[in-house]
Design a protein around this nucleic acid. Structure first.
Lengths: 119, 119
DNA sequence: TCCTCATTTCAACGATTCTTGAAATGTGAC
DNA sequence: GTCACATTTCAAGAATCGTTGAAATGAGGA
């Protein structure tokens, strides 16, 4: 994870609609949700608006898209989220790395193996 | 951590200068660094510019300020960072919470006890 | 008290971002 | 092939944010 990638990721998460989408997809799990389902979950937000934000999250690498019939399913990019946490917390426990480092590593390995789709 | 607080935190982290400041303070540990030291570490950025971003990070709750003589020392707000991670990753491991939940909890407890200053 | 140093506040300009509605694309059903 | 549906693309307007330099604040030393 480079600084540019982290900046793009944080910028993506700093917008209300996008943060809600990411959290929705994080709890939805690897299966993901269709764009229309996401729009419906967001107080029936306009399709173009949701699409704009989904594209933004995809560009930031935080979500992954795959087509399923007429729908497009979006799911959280768990490895990217774990990387982002690692980027932010790296070296956070000066003098007590035995506490923090394993936690970051656990988050990373927890999520890195759980991505569906493109391998 | 509310959604508003998380949004403010991510917005704060989505700016290059601010992200560098936070990472600098995360690696600096609980002692923190003076505003002038931070400015010097940022390619000698203008004092007003650094001050603007420090104020922004402070408002977002990501850093803590304390006066030390003529200097003002800033340090990372480790508990807030851990909370932010928890907010983002909550319920991330559908079906395998035994991996992710302890990692989030470890990050949280790792950092929650290590804050200097205002108690 | 006066001076110097560290930092913050202020005002103004330039740049980027979000929303909306209409039109276009791509997919499956008849 | 045509229709209906799900989603994306496009253009335009309103709002928010970052940088800069100058002036103000606050703290310590002579």
């Amino acid at each position: 994870m480079t600084e540019s990638e982290a900046l793009a990721a944080f910028a993506a998460l700093s917008q209300e609609t996008r943060l809600r989408i990411v959290r929705l997809l994080v709890t939805a799990g690897p299966e993901g949700l269709a764009a229309g389902t996401i729009a419906a979950a967001l107080d029936g937000a306009a399709a173009s608006r949701v699409s704009f934000h989904l594209a933004s999250l995809d560009r930031a690498g935080l979500i992954v898209a795959r087509r399923d019939g007429r729908s497009i399913l979006y799911s959280a990019a768990f490895p990217a989220l774990a990387d982002l946490v690692g980027f932010l917390m790296r070296d956070c426990c000066q003098g007590h790395p035995e506490v923090c480092t394993p936690a970051v590593a656990a988050l990373d390995s927890c999520c890195s193996a759980r991505e569906p789709g493109r391998d």
